[in-house]
Design a protein around this nucleic acid. Sequence first.
DNA 1: GATGAATGAGACTTCATTCAT
DNA 2: TATGAATGAAGTCTCATTCAT
Lengths: 209, 209, 209, 209
Amino acid sequence: MFGNSDKKTADKRTVILDAALKTFVKRGYTETKVAEIASEAGVAEGTLYNYFQNKEGLLLALFDEKWGGIIEGIRGKISRLDDPNKKLKAIFSQVVIMFKKNRQLAELFMVDVKQSSIFLNNYTINRIVEFLDLIEEVLVEGKQKGVYRRDLDTRVAKMIIFGAAQGILLSWVLSESAAVRNKTFKFSIYQAAKTLKDVFKSGLVGEKK
Amino acid sequence: MFGNSDKKTADKRTVILDAALKTFVKRGYTETKVAEIASEAGVAEGTLYNYFQNKEGLLLALFDEKWGGIIEGIRGKISRLDDPNKKLKAIFSQVVIMFKKNRQLAELFMVDVKQSSIFLNNYTINRIVEFLDLIEEVLVEGKQKGVYRRDLDTRVAKMIIFGAAQGILLSWVLSESAAVRNKTFKFSIYQAAKTLKDVFKSGLVGEKK
Amino acid sequence: MFGNSDKKTADKRTVILDAALKTFVKRGYTETKVAEIASEAGVAEGTLYNYFQNKEGLLLALFDEKWGGIIEGIRGKISRLDDPNKKLKAIFSQVVIMFKKNRQLAELFMVDVKQSSIFLNNYTINRIVEFLDLIEEVLVEGKQKGVYRRDLDTRVAKMIIFGAAQGILLSWVLSESAAVRNKTFKFSIYQAAKTLKDVFKSGLVGEKK
Amino acid sequence: MFGNSDKKTADKRTVILDAALKTFVKRGYTETKVAEIASEAGVAEGTLYNYFQNKEGLLLALFDEKWGGIIEGIRGKISRLDDPNKKLKAIFSQVVIMFKKNRQLAELFMVDVKQSSIFLNNYTINRIVEFLDLIEEVLVEGKQKGVYRRDLDTRVAKMIIFGAAQGILLSWVLSESAAVRNKTFKFSIYQAAKTLKDVFKSGLVGEKK
DNA sequence: GATGAATGAGACTTCATTCAT
DNA sequence: TATGAATGAAGTCTCATTCAT
């Protein structure tokens, strides 16, 4: 009704960013042509450059804003919890919920971590490290509270947990990929999450309750 | 003298393939220029096309021959073992040994496996599935032998194990990346493997031994 | 109040023209972006097009109005003089005074006059020819009055004088260019003008006075 | 017959450079499209980049090689002369001969001195300074030998001479420009050179012979 | 008149692949 | 077989100009 103009401007940026996400996921970063993003967003190519520095800027913004948003969300959720196990569960629930809501984001997450020098030196890595730190904080807290075993190497464990989560996501992504449907199975992300929890809970605790 | 010619031809193919591996790993597939591979191999650009159909053919060959070789090796090793836990351990030992020996292969595995759907839908995927099947076979066997819990969802578990292993490898790769050295730690792949084993052993067994 | 609006409109045109001069001089015509001129003038890009047809129109106006004004001023000055030598001196004095007052105009004159055939074939050329004609008129008059030698080719001489003056100006411009300060010298435009006069006076007269 | 291959390669570089000179002169640097140069040279666009870094590299090479060659030629010529007046004459004769032979070079010489930051900070300026130094050397020598007046400011005089020569060249270039043919005159570069000599000889000497 | 977001044609450059030698 | 100069399609990005508000 009012402030419409502000809204519209904000919208266009979002529209472009979403178009970028969609095409990056569909074709991969390198194979995505700027023209395709523009067309997907319904704007002229030049318009992209009014909102982002260049093609790389689009990818960086995606990682920073989308992924950053998830981490913020998780931090909010787990700050209200006490039990490290529940925190860990909350972390993964949040990720799953988020990815359920925006499947493309899940795929972007799978898209290479190293690809080009862009990543290792800049954004992604920092976000990943941020996420890893989040996990490690919980693990350390769990050790202090005696919930996790004393000799747990949290620096390694966080990578295992992170990787396992990635494995689940990869499963999920692949399970719907036409190319592999024959070789794999109908995948329930919720069922998978339960298995993940079971494996780690017992494993991390290390003691029969 | 003439048999020599055959030998030389075979050699040149290997030289080119190794050069491709080296540069793919250093820059990533897309960023690697054919000219760079040729220069690294010490041959002319045109020569590559006598041995491989095109740039993509080089990647295909790498996955097929190098990665395929590792899987064959693993199959050989575990066929002589009975205990599923030992088999699982052997699988990872083999991977670690292989990657220790050929660090670049480890990176290629980390980098390009997740690179993009281009890869996922074509060659790589087949090798990954092959590897995943290997793990699942062991898990299924373990369930049958009563070593692993009855309700273990092997299709999910294999992804968790695979992902966790990837997490470890990523850790290792990153630990030597200058960009993140400050934020991470000196990483021992052997120490990490032990933690991996501990976590999964207790976790997979699910009962206190 | 309403007359004010006219005034303001007139002002804005001047503001834009001055901004154009400033940026054309700073970066050269081609390197100057319309956005830069607008920003320098403190108006929106679109506003420029209310006062000038396009970017080229700005340059045209600059030459016509600024440079044209100088020539008018010179004509006024020399019409009151009799001695061709004094007229010649007056011409250069006027140019030097003008350029002292508006250094940027001097640079625009130096830079864009020789820029490219685009300019040579269009607007600039007319103003240059006008200036050259002014010089030639004086030379012809000087021949008629017996002040300059009979066999002086005024059509060539005017170019020599014009060029020499340009050389002086170039010197002056360069002398303050950081890039060449090491290789050149502290330049006095007044001292230079004296040398110019000496050289030409004796040279043009051709007789020892 | 032999060394043919070397010759051809050298030829292609020259062909491209000449095509660049031709089109730069015809349209000016900025207006010249790489495609046009390639077409003029009869090669593919990509071929240019096998011989030169980029479009700017073409211009730089032109200035460096063509203009540098002229200066070398002049140095060779005047080193064999004693009389400063003859040296000065030789300098201009060389320039005129060179430009007669390659008219486009003359035009390139006229093309802006400042145009883009390329020039002021890099090549052209250095070549110009080199040329100016050549003139000053002669003037200084002339003063020492008593040929030129004691109080001659050689630093200013060289600019006057340089500028005057440029004026002559501009005349020449313009005289054949269709746009101004009506307003100017049929121009003889040789006649012009004589006038230049007359003017400067008497002027520089300052004494009646 | 003023604004400035949107436009889109077109420029430069890269690089996998070819092919004459 | 080996070579590497030549190719040219295709991609990213710029920026003068327009036009709805």
